[in-house]
Design a protein around this nucleic acid. Structure first.
Lengths: 146, 146
DNA sequence: GGCATATAGTTAGTTATGCAACTAATTTCA
DNA sequence: TGAAATTAGTTGCATAACTAACTATATGCC
């Protein structure tokens, strides 16, 4: 493996460590300062529903890379906050369609602005090619492992 | 911000999403298949102690990018499994020095092999320059936010 | 039709994370 | 010297993650 010589565990720390934690914390902080009561995990679910509303829980699992119990409880909490609603599908009664409420629709622009602003802060001094490299590497890593 | 034009939230998903989750899950799975009962979070603490033994909890916070309660509880669990031991420092009695047991020392080679092997699987088709770019970008992101 | 199998979602138990509030030991400095 | 501020670590509370085991509905096949 000529390309993959690296120090013990170091790369694991890179991919799973400091940067993603720091970004997550900053985004959460920016949400809180804007008076938003949602977690970034909840936001990531809403994000996919803003792109396409009324997805099944299984589809949300696939798109957010979470397992089923995680999605069940995220939806539980989002439903408590009246941001989404479960509706049984008429074609297949095993399926819950998760749809946005009007309240949630109203949060879209603000939270996406905050996410963009957070990423702008995070990426000061990083150029477009580097971003493309990171995205492309991460895609290959994901594909290698799934 | 000429360098930072990107689609809504997309980059957030890249940095916090699929790749790191996939690597973490694979590493955990490889530990389990080798009969190791430790979590990747516990491993990441042990990893820093293998590099330098008997660190304070605060120093472990800095090196693992975790907050103090997280380290307190990770050490609690590692102590239950008899992998580390807390010892009050003689110079400053506020400080707990966290030291490896012989059992933990014996796990070093195996777990680091498993981590390296996992990262090799993950990085098939990724070259050295790309890895360096990812590391460098993540370092700058971290510095920007802290 | 009816049994085996697969799929969608939930529940229970353990570990981990973040924040806020707390105790105890140490340092600062007037 | 002694009160105020700082530092190290712990505890309580809420959310989230993974695994395994579970219910309910749908599908496949004889």
């Amino acid at each position: 493996m000529p390309n993959n010589q690296f120090k013990r565990g170091e790369l694991y720390s890179v991919i799973n460590g400091m940067a993603s934690t720091a970004v997550a914390r900053r985004l959460q902080k920016n949400f809180r300062q804007a008076g938003l009561e949602i977690t970034i995990e909840q936001w990531s679910v809403l994000y996919h529903l803003w792109k396409e509303d009324c997805l099944s829980q299984q589809e949300l699992c696939n798109r957010t890379f979470r397992d089923k119990p995680s999605i069940t409880r995220l939806i539980d909490n989002l439903e408590k906050q009246k941001l989404v609603k479960r509706t049984a599908s008429k074609e297949d009664r095993r399926i819950n369609l998760v749809c946005l409420t009007e309240t949630a629709k109203g949060l879209q622009d603000l939270t996406i602005d905050l996410a963009n602003q957070t990423m702008s802060e995070a990426l000061i001094g990083v150029n477009k090619e580097e971003i493309e490299t990171v995205k492309s590497v991460f895609q290959r890593v994901y594909d290698n492992l799934t």
